[in-house]
Every structure is written in C-alpha cells, then in structure tokens.
C-alpha cells in the first residue's frame, strides 16, 4: 500500500526513500530462500565430489567421533561419516518432497478442475470424496497406509500422495469456478473447443498463480512429513542415508549430539528456504497482500 492512498490509516505517511529500503527488505527473504534451495540442489548433485567417504562405509574403529578435521560433522554409531551421509541425504529429501507435491498437485488440480468445470452431481461426488479424505488427520492416515504397504521409499510416497491431493483439489476447484464465468471461456465454448481442451489449455493456465504458491510453500511441508515418517521408521530402508532416519539413529545420544543435531538442522534450513521463497512468491503474485 502506498501511504498516499490512505492518509487516514493507522500508519503515518512514509518518506519516499524508505520505499526503496522496504522494497529491498521485501525481496531479501525470497532471494535468501531461493539461494538456500539452489545451494542444497548443488550439494545433492555434486555430493560425491564433496566427501572422500561413501555414505555406507562402516568404520567401527571410528565410532561416535566428535566433529574434527577428518570428520567435519563427526561419525555415528557405526563409524559412518555424518557429513557424507548428510549431503547424500539431500538427494532423497529433495526428490521425495518435490515428487509428492508435484504429483499431488497434478492429481488434485485435475480432480478439482473437473469438478468445477462439470458442476452438478459430478462436482458434488468429487468434492464430498475430497472432504472425506480431509477429515482424517494426514499424519495418522499416511502412517497407517505406509505401515500397511510395507517400509520403503516408494510406498511412503504413495501413502503421502493419498493424503496430499485433496488440498490442491479444493484450491483448484475454487480457482476454476472463478475463471469459468469469464468471457474467454464463453468464447472458447462458442468456437467449439472440447471441454478437456478448454480446461487444460485455457482455464488451468489462467489460474496457475495461487497453485504455484501452494506448491512452493508445500515442498517444505512434504520434506518435513517424509522426514517425520522416516524418523518413525516408516520411510527409507536402512542404511539409506536420509535426514529423518539419521535424527532417529541419534535420538538417544544426547552426549554425542552431532549425530542427530546436524541432519535435523539441514531439514530446518531447506524447509526455511522453501517457506521464504513461497512467502515471497505469495507477496509477488497476490496484489492484495502486496499492498500491505
């Protein structure tokens, strides 16, 4: 909001120079977020170049060593290098987080879009089904499904997808409902385009903004959830290096804090990165919140 619009607002009139400063401040967080994410992606790609060890190399003579120049972040119960396992773990966390959110968003958008475009009974059935999934607490449902399917990365992703699509379906439905009454849709109907084409090529691209915000904000969420399931032993199969299971392996070792503390901190930074970025994109795409 420029101060001139609302001289009677609660805020006093800001001097013009502060506009620049506020602009810098507004964009600094998303930029930091993007940099954090890029840094982690680079780490994931060049992991083998960063460490002389392999994530699964066991060295019982070097168990639970504190951080030093040979083992930057110390070693775990089996003498494996925590730093090495941490940088390899980036691959799993980033991939699972993105796969869950992207596939979940794709399914949800399609389902919600179809509901809103078809209206009537189809919409009613689809949206009640969505409500039904939403009335289960996500972590408990995912936990039950993951346990029933058996432990493994793919199964955990499937379990998460079951609880992940409904929020995108709800959002997509409300977005498509708004677009549906626009003139360009009427025009597309008049020139005889098929409903599928109108929905996929015209309506959904026009309502993509809020979906992108939710996707960005949600990757962090998905990474935390996956790590949480892994922490409970419902994620990756050991000895796969994964942050959640690394924290779990070190949770009893309060004296040897480095085993659990560093992988958990890695989760915090990457999730913060996605939240910073998502927050920034929201400000940027949503003019209502930009005014503030």
């Amino acid at each position: 909001m420029s101060a001139v619009d609302a001289p009677l607002g609660l805020r006093s009139v800001a001097p013009i120079q502060s506009k620049l400063r506020r602009g810098l401040r507004r964009y600094s967080l998303p930029v930091i977020g993007a940099l954090i994410i890029i840094a982690w992606i680079v780490v994931a790609i060049i992991a083998p170049l960063l460490s002389p060890y392999l994530p699964s190399t066991v060295d019982v003579t070097a168990r639970l060593r504190p951080p030093s120049s040979t083992h930057w972040l110390g070693t775990d119960v089996l003498g494996r290098d925590v730093f090495t396992r941490l940088i390899y773990g980036t691959r799993i966390s980033l991939t699972t987080g993105m796969v869950v959110v992207l596939v979940g968003a794709f399914i949800g958008t399609l389902v919600g879009g179809i509901a809103a475009y078809a209206r009537g009974r189809v919409e009613e059935v689809i949206m009640r089904a969505t409500d039904l999934v939403l009335c289960f607490p996500p972590i408990i449902l995912a936990m039950a499904i993951a346990a029933a399917l058996g432990i493994g990365t793919t199964n955990t992703i499937i379990a998460m997808l079951v609880v992940w699509w409904p929020k995108f379906a709800r959002l997509a439905r409300s977005l498509v409902l708004v677009q549906r009454s626009q003139e360009y849709v009427e025009a597309a109907v008049v020139i005889g385009l098929s409903p599928a084409r109108i929905l996929l090529r015209h309506i959904i691209p026009n309502s993509i903004g809020p979906l992108i915000i939710l996707v960005t904000l949600d990757v962090g969420n998905a990474i935390i959830t996956f790590a949480g399931l892994s922490f409970l032993g419902l994620g990756v199969i050991p000895p796969t290096p994964e942050w959640g299971s690394m924290v779990s392996e070190g949770r009893e070792l309060i004296e040897q804090w480095w085993v659990a503390a560093f992988p958990g901190f890695a989760i915090l930074t990457i999730v913060l990165g996605f939240n910073f970025l998502g927050d920034g994109i929201r400000d940027w795409l949503d003019p209502r919140s930009r005014r503030r």
Partner: peptide
Amino acid sequence: SLIGVSSPTFWLAFILLA
C-alpha cells in the same frame, strides 16, 4: 513464525532435551 513452522518437531525435541 517461519522458524516455528519450518522446524521438524522431532529435531526440536531432541535439541531441547539435549
């Protein structure tokens, strides 16, 4: 609020206990 939302609960618990 951003740190609160972004902290993995199991890790925060570990740190506070430690």
